[in-house]
Design a binder for these strands. Structure first.
Length: 254
DNA sequence: ATGGTTGCAACGCAA
């Protein structure tokens, strides 16, 4: 079973890339972020034609998440309990025996901004939610654009980034508290090296120079992680014409 | 030198 996450930065623009990638990678479940589409505009017909069921929580212009699955999708939730938020950043659902939580964690903008405090508040609500979800669903994955590079090895220039949003201590502590609930970073089960990134700024030739950050993750509950056979970052779509600034991260399970 | 690119949608905002 292949489980993937991809921040597509506009599903309208990236639909051709997504369809091409679905055909080549053949994932069973794909979590999408930054669809930037209202639900009425979601390309359900094209994706069903490609063999996927769809669940989505969209909004105009910003945010928006979706899950595509070859198997049926049930028990959908689109909010963190007790955290009223008009921004569409959460899609929890069940596929087979696995609970999947698709997350588009707030970016935070800068550490001195209101958006940064929103990010930390949001992560606290996520932690409370995941604590309960893990108890209810021993086989669980929390995937998505976390907008956090967990360690310096996940950052192309740690000294230049020190203290910035996406790497700040408070964000990393929130990420560590989340994993301490009982998640495993599947990529790190198979690769402990630096230099592997899932996002590169569009500006300044970021991808060409591999000036990236590893901020998109497939976290698996301990019981699900026991079934993990591999995890990869597929950088190829970043080489295509008019790419997303993020690439798919994929984990394989038995 | 505090830049730059993209998407949305409207001439700014978010990433």
């Amino acid at each position: 079973m292949l489980l993937a996450t991809w921040n597509v930065n506009s599903l309208k623009v990236r639909l051709p890339h997504l369809l091409t990638w679905l055909q080549s990678a053949r994932p069973d479940i794909v979590a999408l972020q930054e669809t930037k589409l209202v639900d009425e505009a979601f390309p359900t017909a094209e994706l069903e034609e490609a063999g996927y069921h769809c669940a989505f929580a969209g909004q105009k212009t910003y945010n928006g998440v979706a899950v595509l699955s070859r198997e049926a999708i049930t028990d959908v939730v689109t909010d963190l309990p007790g955290y009223a938020d008009p921004q569409r950043r959460v899609l929890g659902c069940t596929v087979g025996d696995v609970r999947v939580l698709n997350l588009y964690v707030p970016n935070g903008q800068t550490v001195d901004s209101e958006k940064y405090h929103y990010k930390l508040d949001w992560l606290k609500a996520l932690e409370d939610f995941c604590r309960d979800e893990l108890k209810a669903h021993p086989l669980m994955a929390a995937v998505g654009d976390f907008n956090i590079a967990p360690a310096d090895r996940d950052v192309h220039d740690p000294d230049a980034w020190r203290g910035s949003v996406l790497v700040s201590p408070a964000e990393r502590e929130a990420f560590d508290r989340l994993t301490a609930l009982g998640f495993v970073d599947t990529f790190r089960l198979f690769n402990s090296d630096g230099g592997f990134y899932s996002w590169w700024d569009y500006r300044m030739g970021g991808f060409r120079r591999n000036h990236g950050l590893r901020i998109d993750h497939v976290l698996a509950s301990k019981q699900l992680a026991e079934r993990c056979l591999g995890a990869t970052i597929d950088v190829e779509p970043r080489t295509w014409n008019r790419p997303s600034d993020h690439v798919p991260v994929v984990a394989r399970f038995s």
